[in-house]
Amino acid sequence: MTPTASPHADGAVRVRGVIKTFGVGDAKTVALKGIDFSAAEGELHLVVGPSGCGKTTLLSVVAGTLDWDEGDVSVFGTRLDGMGKGAVTRFRRSNIGFIFQQFNLIPTLTLVENVSVPLLLNGAGRRTAEEKAAQLLKQVGLEGRGNKRPTQLSGGQQQRVAIARALVHEPRLLICDEPTSALDSATGHQIMDILSGVARAPGRCVIIVTHDPRTHRYADRITEMEDGRVTRVLDGAALGEFVSMTH
C-alpha cells in the first residue's frame, strides 16, 4: 500500500471526532471524547496534559495499535478507519517508527540486531539490514558499539538505540511516548536534541507525548489535552509564551 501524498502540509496526521471507550458498565472510561487533532509534515509536535487525560490513547489510535469507537483517522492521507487489521499492520510497519518510555529493546539481541528489526520486518535481507543499522547507530553517536547488548548501556544510550531503531526504515511518522521521562535531565536534553535534529526532516512528522516541561522548547507546536479533549493548540507567539511560562 502506498499512502497517497497529502494535499497540504497540515495533513500528516488528522484525527476528527474520535471517541474511545474502555470497559463496560461501572468500569467504563471514556478516554477520548470526540477529539480533533492534527499534525503537519516537518513538524515536531508535542502532546501534553495531566495524567490520565488520554495522551497515550490518542497516540495509540494515531499509530494504529488501538481500535477506536467513532471518528476518522488519517495518516499521510491514508484513512486508518475501515482498514483491515492486516492492512493497518502493514501500514504501520513501513510508515511509522516507535519510541517507547521503557525503550523496549530486546535484551538478548545485540544493538545492531535490535536496530535492524524494522528493516527485517519490511523484508530486507540480513546483511543490508545490519549495514543500515550500523549507520544509524553511528548517527546517534554509538559507533562501534553494535555488538554490545542493551543491558550494557545506560538509559540514555538505550534510548538512542531505540531512536536508531525507530528511524532505520525511514518512516514518515515518528511516535514517541514519554521518551525522556525515564532519563535524567541532561540525558533528556540530549535525546530531545537528537530527536529534533535527526528525526525532524522534511516530509516527516514527529509526535511526542510528554509530561516533561523541559521538552517544551523543542516543539514546533503543542497540543494540550484535558479529560479526553483538546483544550489548546499552541504555535507561534502563544507557543513562545507557553514555553517560557512552563520553563
Partner: peptide
C-alpha cells in the same frame, strides 16, 4: 517474560502470523 518485547514487535508491524 517477553510479552513487552513481543508487543513492541507487534507495534513495529510484526503480524500474528510472523
Amino acid at each position: 517474560e517477553n510479552l513487552k518485547n513481543l508487543g513492541a514487535l507487534k507495534a513495529m508491524g510484526a503480524g500474528n502470523g510472523l
